[in-house]
């Protein structure tokens, strides 16, 4: 038994290593080309070892001090947005698993329908900016994407349905615990894997979001990191591509374009890579099981 398992572990590691290499390889090209000199890449093509190191692109990004402020904005928005979003998502998902709840079908449909139809950008923009006046406030970065995913509700519901043992809820009810108490003290602690999962997906979403900033923020103090990077990217791309006489000012600063694209990706990616292991501990096997047995 043990011997067989060792064989499997080796195979498992081999497969995962191959997979990791497949995933890492393009990323490595990305990182290396972000540190190469632009003309080398244009003339000789991409390679894993830069002909000469050149950090112009990074200098360009960090020259603007606002990048650290933007990091802060993004971290704040990501934290607040994720917490709010996870609370709202788990609460409605739990309601959707309550047996015999009158109107449950309608409620499921109500949630699912939001995934299929959307009114488009202009109506949402009009509503948020003209009725709720969220333009140039921190809300603009949090609220419009707070729960835009019925997807997360559906998978959380599915998780609750299959992994929360009914006996526990029942006995808690018999003990006279309130429904809210049951939800916060029993259901949530039993659901760390799914909370970590949707939490992480929300974090990813908030972290990578630049559209809210694009549409609702003009105040430089509130620009998020991805919006800042995306602005740089689209701008550099625009200036690099265009040679239309009237669009580019004769005296516009020369910016690296090819290597800038790559370094922007690296700068945007780094903090998440640092942050991710924090979430990982929730996926560990047996975490929920102990609780079930106890």
């Amino acid at each position: 038994m043990v011997k067989k398992d060792t064989g499997f572990q080796i195979m498992d590691n081999v497969i995962m290593s191959i997979l990791s290499i497949l995933v890492l390889f393009p990323i490595l090209v990305l990182i290396m080309s972000s540190m190469s000199s632009e003309s080398d890449v244009m003339k000789y093509g991409y390679s894993l070892i830069p002909r000469q190191f050149d950090l112009t692109a990074y200098q360009y990004i960090f020259k603007e001090g606002s990048i650290f402020h933007s990091y802060f904005i993004t971290i704040f928005v990501t934290l607040v947005g994720t917490v709010l979003s996870v609370i709202m998502t788990t609460m409605i998902s739990y309601t959707l698993t309550v047996p015999g709840l009158p109107g449950k079908k309608i409620l499921s449909f109500y949630v699912l329908f939001t995934m299929l139809f959307s009114g488009g950008l202009v109506p949402s923009y009009m509503m948020w900016s003209n009725i709720f006046h969220i333009k140039n406030t921190i809300y603009a970065l949090i609220v419009p994407s707070l729960m835009c995913s019925a997807f997360h509700i559906m998978i959380t519901r599915s998780y609750f349905q299959n992994n929360i043992p009914g006996e526990i809820l029942e006995s808690a009810r018999i003990d006279g615990m309130s429904e809210f108490g049951i939800f916060f003290k029993i259901v949530l602690p039993l659901s760390t894997p799914i909370i970590a999962t949707i939490g992480f997906m929300r974090v990813l979403m908030y972290w990578n979001d630049w559209t809210n900033s694009l549409y609702y923020i003009t105040d430089k103090k509130l620009v998020s990191i991805q919006a800042l990077l995306n602005n740089m990217l689209t701008n550099a791309q625009y200036l690099a591509q265009s040679m239309d006489a009237s669009m580019v000012a004769t005296d516009s600063a020369s910016v690296p374009s090819l290597t800038l694209r790559m370094s922007i990706a690296v700068v945007g990616m780094l903090p998440m890579i640092v942050l991710y292991p924090f979430f990982q501990k929730y996926y560990m096997k047996g975490l929920t099981v102990g609780a079930v047995k106890g």
């Binding site: 202009v122 694009l214 602005n231 689209t234 701008n235 625009y238």
Partner: peptide
């Protein structure tokens, strides 16, 4: 607006919102 942003927002401006 910077050019990159401009082209993403132009249609929003045009819609009169």
């Amino acid at each position: 607006y910077e050019f990159g942003q401009w082209f993403q927002q132009y249609s929003l401006f045009l819609s009169g919102t």
